[in-house]
Design a protein around this nucleic acid. Structure first.
Lengths: 104, 104
DNA sequence: ACAATGTACTGTGTATTGCAAGATACTGTG
DNA sequence: CACAGTATCTTGCAATACACAGTACATTGT
């Protein structure tokens, strides 16, 4: 898979999943990896960016299966961002497909 | 527009347009910019990469409206690459949409 | 004691884009 | 004719986000 394609969409995917329910990082990796390959080394820096810009908050929860889990929760700022990025994504792939269709 | 989204797709778009007809760089910029904003500073390094890996060839044609135009032509290697990237793109945006749909 | 798995984090490298600037050629206007 | 504007190609530097590898620590099972 061309890893360049993922750029910009992983953030959208994370926000989208978090808009359904709170998740911890490792869980997000597994959830999203079903469709698009990612690893922890990709997700944690992304979560840090999202936290820094106020799109998400986090809280720790003890776990019996390993170290404490850091759950992430989407904020109102994050929901606004999600909506914007969703619109961008939809118009973007419509644009790409328009260019591609011309060549058939 | 989130410029990160374009990554990986511009090459696909260029190959796709070239699969229809030969184009010169400036023309490609205008053609593609109808849908996705790009400038010469983006297209020419891309054309160089494509030429280096054998996906396209180029030839000069005199012009009465400015300096000579450098036309680009897709090769068989380029067509194979186009097909691969087309498949990747289709499966990629299906994957993204699958993740996004879960959150509705 | 040790392996396996769950969980979080960091560092280095890399690829592709944005933006800005420059170089050359032609066209039209004052 | 000078000059502005447009067409066309080229190059350089900065920024961004991802890949991969590695570290660290907790728990459970053998």
């Amino acid at each position: 898979m061309n890893s360049q394609l993922k750029r910009g969409t992983l953030e959208l995917c994370v926000l989208s999943v978090l808009s359904r329910r709170d998740c911890y990082g490792y869980e997000l990796v597994n959830e999203i990896s079903d469709c698009i390959h990612i690893t922890e080394g990709t997700i944690y820096p992304l979560m840090k960016r999202l936290k820094d810009d106020g799109s998400i908050t986090s809280y720790l929860v003890e776990s019996r299966e390993g170290p404490p889990r850091k759950y992430y929760s989407i904020t109102d700022i994050g929901r606004v961002k999600l909506k914007e990025q969703l619109d961008e994504w939809n118009s973007f792939y419509a644009s790409v497909n328009k260019i591609l269709e011309k060549s058939i």
